[in-house]
């Protein structure tokens, strides 16, 4: 158990972070905080991916000088993916923020609880 914790602390940290973000997104009524939660959640996943991608003792996948064989470099895919992910997250955040502004214009508040009624459950 301990060894698992020791060897996987990055993953565990990201999962904890994910939980934090998730719960913020889910439970907070303030829209801005919700968006922050969303970002925390997304970021935690990016971190998670990247920790998976990193293998200790390897180099970045940039051939600097001679090619040292495939085993010398970390896999570049997670990093590449995460770039896309960040873009997606950013656009989502942007959209959410824009919507928040609209929301504020319409309702004069950014507190979701003041606006949502019980219809729709």
């Amino acid at each position: 158990m301990i060894s698992f914790l020791a060897s996987h602390y990055f993953q565990i940290g990201t999962v904890i972070l994910f939980g934090v973000g998730f719960m913020t997104l889910l439970l907070n009524n303030n829209l801005i905080r919700k968006i922050i939660g969303l970002n925390i959640m997304d970021t935690s996943i990016f971190l998670f991916f990247i920790t998976i991608g990193y293998t200790g003792g390897r180099e970045a996948p940039i051939i600097n000088g001679a090619f040292k064989g495939i085993d010398a470099y970390v896999t570049p895919i997670p990093t590449g993916l995460m770039l896309t992910g960040i873009v997606v997250a950013v656009s989502t955040t942007a959209f959410a923020l824009a919507l928040t502004i609209l929301f504020y214009e319409r309702f004069g508040t950014i507190d979701l609880s003041e606006v949502m009624d019980s219809r729709g459950d």
Partner: peptide, 21 residues
Amino acid sequence: NIKATMKYLILSSLGSGLVLM
């Protein structure tokens, strides 16, 4: 509409996060 969108967006983001995880 704004309200509904907000609801949808938040829940969708939750879903997306879960899927990505």
